[in-house]
């Protein structure tokens, strides 16, 4: 997934409560066998969970982070967040779709919006007073 994000000009940071030393060993002993060249983005160490607490994803009972994912725009504004409990993994396709949708909206200067289920290449909505009650004309799910 990282190459696709890179193509869209998106940087990635991962965070867990493990030490930076643990990150290095995990990358060198296991991850590089799963991902060619190892992990290409910074792996942050949040020992104590201060960052996770700030983002509402630190679980004090287990001392670990939940699966929280945040998309931030170039102004540093959070545009999307998703938080899962640990046993369920994420869907990177949905992450890519959301990034592309938020980038499109930003590039349009807020003049366009993407309807439910939109994927890149499909028509967008251009919200205006004249469109009220006529969304059905341009968007048929």
């Amino acid at each position: 997934m990282y190459p696709e994000l890179k193509k869209l000009g998106v940087d990635v940071l991962s965070v867990s409560t493990d030490s930076k030393f643990s990150h290095k060993i995990w990358d060198e002993t296991e991850l590089e066998k799963m991902v060619e060249g190892g992990i290409p983005f910074p792996m942050l160490s949040d020992q104590g969970g201060q960052i996770g607490t700030l983002y509402g994803v630190y679980d004090e009972d287990s001392g670990t982070e939940l699966r929280g994912r945040f998309i931030m725009d170039p102004d540093g504004v959070i545009q999307a967040m998703e938080v899962l409990t640990p046993p369920v993994g994420r869907n990177t396709e949905e992450l890519l779709r959301q990034v592309q949708a938020f980038q499109l909206v930003r590039e349009s200067g807020g003049k366009e919006a993407t309807p439910s289920g939109w994927t890149p290449g499909e028509p967008t909505l251009k919200p205006s007073p004249s469109m009220v009650g006529k969304v059905w004309e341009v968007w048929k799910p």
Partner: peptide
């Protein structure tokens, strides 16, 4: 653009 990803553990 940035994606910040938390996960339970290495």
């Amino acid at each position: 653009w940035l994606v910040l990803c938390f996960y339970p553990g290495d």
